[in-house]
C-alpha cells in the first residue's frame, strides 16, 4: 500500500515542494527586509540625495545645488563645535559613567542585605522617558525655584548659585551630569552581570591567601571585567555620538550653541530654519562620522581582544 502511494505521487507535487523549500528563505526574510529597505536603507540613501538640494521642505521649490551644502558644512563652525561637543559627551560618558558604574556594581555585588531592592531602585531612571527626565531636571536646575540653587542658598553659598542651563559655560556640563544620572544604572547592571560570572572559588582562594577586599577588587575583579568594560566603552561612545534627546529637551542646543550636538543642530536646521537640504547634509555627515568612529572602535576593541 505504501508503495502505491509513493508511486502515485505526481512529479508536479514533488517539484512544487522542492521549489517551496528553495523559496523558503526568501519568504521568511521578505517582511523584515522590506521594512528595513523602506525605513532604514532608503532614508539613508535619500538623505545623501537631499543633501544636494536647497529646499525648505514645502512644495516644488527644491533646487539642485550640487556640493554647495557640503562646502558650507566644511566651513560651518557650529557643525564642528557640535561635533566637538559630541566627542566631549563621549569622553565624559566613558570617564564618569563607567567608573561610577563599576563601583556601584561592586557595591551591589558585595552588599548582601537589600542589594536586590537597591538594584531595583537604581534601575528606575532608565525606565523614564528622556522627556520626563529632561523636564524633571530642567526644574531641578531652575535658577529661581530649583532645589540645586535652593540648597546652595540654604548653606549660605550664594556665590555658587548659577543659571545652570542658561550659562553657556555651564550648560553642556549640566546636561552631561543628567545624561550620566540616567545612564549609569545601565552600565551598573552590565558590570553586575560581568561580576556574576566571577568565579566564587577564586574569591575564596584569594581570601585564604590573605588578600584584602581592595586587593581582590583591583587585582582580580577589575581584570575579570575587562571584556564587559570594552563592550561598555563601545556602547557609550556610539551612544554619545548619536545623542539627541536630553540635550534637545533641556537646552535645545543653546544657549548660543553651547550645548549643540550634531543631531540637535541637524534637527533645528531642518525643522526650525526649514533648511531641509542643509539639514540632510548635516545628517549625512553625522552618518559618516558615526560609521567611521564605530568602525575604528570595533577595530581597536578587536585588537585588544586578540592581544589580551
Amino acid at each position: 500500500m505504501t508503495v502505491a502511494t509513493h508511486r502515485a505521487e505526481p512529479v508536479r507535487r514533488r517539484r512544487a515542494r522542492a521549489l517551496s523549500s528553495a523559496l523558503a528563505p526568501a519568504v521568511f526574510l521578505a517582511p523584515a527586509v522590506v521594512l528595513l529597505l523602506v525605513y532604514l536603507l532608503y532614508p539613508l540613501v535619500d538623505s545623501f540625495r537631499l543633501s544636494l538640494l536647497a529646499w525648505n521642505g514645502l512644495g516644488e521649490t527644491a533646487r539642485y545645488v550640487g556640493l554647495e551644502n557640503w562646502v558650507r558644512l566644511a566651513h560651518d563652525q557650529v557643525f564642528w563645535l557640535s561635533a566637538g561637543n559630541n566627542i566631549l559627551l563621549a569622553l565624559f560618558s566613558v570617564l564618569i559613567q563607567l567608573p561610577i558604574a563599576i563601583v556601584l556594581a561592586v557595591v551591589l555585588d558585595e552588599a548582601s542585605h537589600g542589594s536586590r531592592l537597591l538594584k531595583i531602585l537604581y534601575f528606575l531612571p532608565l525606565l523614564m522617558s528622556s522627556v520626563a527626565v529632561g523636564v524633571l531636571f530642567k526644574n531641578v536646575y531652575d535658577p529661581n525655584f530649583g532645589p540645586v540653587n535652593s540648597i546652595l542658598e540654604a548653606f549660605g553659598l550664594y556665590d555658587w548659585t548659577q543659571d545652570w542651563l542658561g550659562d553657556p559655560h555651564l550648560a553642556l556640563a549640566s546636561v552631561i551630569a543628567v545624561v550620566c544620572w540616567q545612564n549609569i544604572p545601565f552600565y551598573m547592571v552590565l558590570f553586575l552581570a560581568g561580576l556574576a560570572s566571577f568565579p566564587r572559588e577564586l574569591n575564596e582562594a584569594a581570601r585564604l591567601d590573605g588578600a584584602s577586599e581592595i586587593t581582590i577588587f583591583w587585582r582580580l575583579k577589575l581584570p575579570h571585567l575587562k571584556g564587559t568594560f570594552r563592550t561598555a566603552v563601545l556602547l557609550a561612545v556610539i551612544g554619545s555620538l548619536r545623542y539627541f534627546d536630553l540635550i534637545y529637551i533641556m537646552t535645545g542646543g543653546g544657549p548660543d550653541n553651547a550645548s549643540e550636538l550634531m543631531a540637535t543642530y541637524m534637527y533645528r536646521t531642518v525643522f526650525s530654519s526649514f533648511q531641509l537640504g542643509y539639514g540632510s547634509t548635516i545628517a549625512s555627515a553625522m552618518f559618516i562620522v558615526v560609521t567611521l568612529i564605530a568602525a575604528v572602535s570595533f577595530r581597536i576593541s578587536r585588537r585588544f581582544e586578540t592581544e589580551i
Binding site: 532608503y42 532614508p43 555620538l241 541637524m266 531642518v270 531641509l276
Partner: peptide, 15 residues
C-alpha cells in the same frame, strides 16, 4: 544597529 536614527528622520518625515 549602529545607524544613528536621526539620519533617517528627514527622509522618513517626507515619506
Amino acid at each position: 544597529m549602529i545607524v544613528p536614527l536621526h539620519i533617517t528622520l528627514v527622509p522618513v518625515y517626507l515619506m
